[in-house]
Each structure stands twice: as structure tokens, then as C-alpha cells.
Write a protein that binds this DNA or RNA. Structure first.
Lengths: 166, 166
DNA sequence: TGCAAATGGTTTCATATGTAACTATAACGG
DNA sequence: CCGTTATAGTTACATATGAAACCATTTGCA
């Protein structure tokens, strides 16, 4: 494999597949499931996050923590970690910021002083009630690209690829 | 003390949805598309990356750059960025490591000295030829959870949600 | 021409994230 | 009981990542 492309021809806009394709069987990235999922996931998450990140100075991880606390009252940090699929360090940090910002309340558990008991504050609820509808609206926008049948299949497929635990 | 006389509510294992649910309409995270995609994407990417990261000391972004260079010879950094959907800083850094490691060759373009002309080296190809089949195998494992019909729908859905440009 | 604007790419800095170590408390086994 | 082990959570450190500033070169056009 000599780099004979040294000087000559059309180096300018090399759109052609590499010659070695046949022998090397390179990955077709844009057809590769993990890659596609990663792009799609980032695109969508970012679009939604843009909506609230600037406005409320909150990160995706913090928002997820809040979303979980909106549904389940009095969770411990570990339980939040479970439900958000984040690791406990990430949760700890998100909580630090959220408590600091006055959006989450934290007291220590009566019977187990290691645990904390978490919940949204007034301010937390207020923000939640503004962000949640935005997030849902964005989700609808994305799903609007699909028809009902496709949406059904998507759900089914996601369920199979990743069984929701609990 | 009397375990009975717990005056506070039962903070012990709060599995019940928060009482405020009705008025606040909290997000059901585990049914929320962006969240599910993010989890799924991370799970899968991580599983695959684990295969080669340790073994070759290479990151996902570096691998993606290599995969693109395996298919398209002589790309510039900017073109790599386009095709990997990474930003140019990330590409620049990945390339620095790859060139350093002797896996990618870089020369400056003859007609435009700003550009670089990139390609895999011998060592790069060797590694590529070991990693690519692994990645494909992993993808197959994931897709094996679906039947043929579901796989077809998945493809169709991904195409609609995220048209492949170019 | 010549000079402002655009482009390819790298560097810098601030922030995010993951791993491992650490602190405090609780549970367990003899 | 008492010492070991496990668990909840935080801190420290090292690495990754993104935005903006930056350098070099090329392009557009008066």
C-alpha cells in the first residue's frame, strides 16, 4: 500500500471509496446501528436541551434528576441513580447543583443517616411545570415524522432492544 | 425506640408516585423517546467500545475517524468531520493521536496548504481489519434480538427520523 | 493587484464526566 | 457486643469535550 497519491490527480474532492475497499471490508458508518443511534440520540437530546439549558441554566442530567423526583417523592440519591441510569457520582453532582439552586430539597433519612430524602421544592416544581411540556412538545415534533404504524413499531423495537427494568 | 411511633411519613422505601402527579404531569422518563434513545445508544456503543478500547487504546471518536478513512481515501480533516458528524476540534484531536500512534498518515494538500490529506497506514489497516469484524459482530448480536420484520422497520424508522445526508 | 473575508486546522480555557479513593453510617457473623 | 463487611454519598484526580480565540492560507472582489 504505497501512498502513490503523492502529488497527482484529484486530491481536491476525494469522494470515491478507497481502492482497498474490497479486501478490507470497511465499515459503512452511516449504516452502522450504533453510530446511527448515537447521532440520532445526540441530535434529539441536544434539540430538546437547547430549549431549557440557556433559559434555566440546567444540564440534561440535572433535568433528568428533576423529572424523576417529580414522579417519585422522597427517593434517595441511589434510587435516583437507578431510575435515571446515571452513576452515583453524576447524581451526587447534579443534586449538589440543584440543591444549591433551590430546586431540590434534601434532608437525611430518619432511620438511616447515610441516606438522603429528596424532593422538588416550590421553585423546582415551578420550573418542572414549564420544562416538562416543552420536552413533550419536542418529542411530539420528532415523532410527527413517523406515522402511527411506525411509531408502534418503534416502541416495540425499543422495548425489545432494551427491556425496561423494574 | 418504638418502630411504630414514626411520626414522619414512611420515607423508608418510597415507591409510590408523588402525590402531586395529577396537577404536575411529570415526565415518564422511561417512556420518553430521547431518554430511551440515549440509554440504548450508550449501552450499545459502550459494549462495542469495550471490545477494542482496552485492547488497542483507542477511543470511539478515533475509531470512527479510522472507519471513515478506511472507506474514503485522502479526505481532509473537515471532510472527516462531516462524515463522522463530529466537530472539527474533536477530529483534530483524534487525528493527532492517530498520527502519533502511526495509524493514520497525514500530508498537506498540494494545491491548498491549509488542508491535510489523510489515510490509513499499514498499521492502521491492520488494526482496522481486526476491529471492523468485531464491531460488525456486536451489531449482529444486538440485531439478533429482533426478527427480520422488526429489523426492516427499524431501518425505515431510522431513515425517516434522520435522513442520511449526501 | 491588494486587502478584507472566508476556510482549514490547532490551541486554549473552562466545564463535564468516569474511576478510584475516601468518609460516615449501617448490617452482619461469630 | 465487636470487628468485618457493605452501603450511601462525596471528593480528588485524570481525561474528555465544546466554545472561542487563534494562525496560516486561500478566496473574493474593488
Amino acid at each position: 500500500m504505497k501512498p502513490f497519491a503523492r502529488n497527482t490527480v484529484k486530491v481536491s474532492t476525494p469522494r470515491k471509496p478507497a481502492p482497498a475497499t474490497a479486501e478490507h471490508a470497511p465499515l459503512q458508518l452511516e449504516r452502522f446501528l450504533p453510530y446511527r443511534l448515537s447521532i440520532l440520540s445526540n441530535t434529539i437530546s441536544q434539540a430538546i436541551a437547547d430549549d431549557y439549558q440557556r433559559r434555566y441554566d440546567i444540564s440534561v442530567t440535572e433535568w433528568r434528576v428533576m423529572a424523576v423526583l417529580a414522579r417519585f417523592e422522597g427517593l434517595s440519591a441511589r434510587e435516583v441513580a437507578e431510575r435515571t441510569a446515571m452513576d452515583k457520582v453524576a447524581v451526587s453532582r447534579a443534586l449538589a447543583r440543584l440543591v444549591e439552586a433551590g430546586r431540590v430539597s434534601r434532608v437525611t433519612h430518619d432511620d438511616d443517616k447515610r441516606r438522603s430524602v429528596l424532593g422538588l421544592t416550590e421553585a423546582g416544581w415551578t420550573m418542572h411545570d414549564e420544562v416538562a411540556p416543552m420536552a413533550r412538545a419536542r418529542e411530539r415534533e420528532v415523532l410527527a415524522k413517523l406515522d402511527a404504524e411506525e411509531r408502534a413499531w418503534l416502541n416495540r423495537i425499543l422495548d425489545k432492544l432494551q427491556p425496561i427494568e423494574r
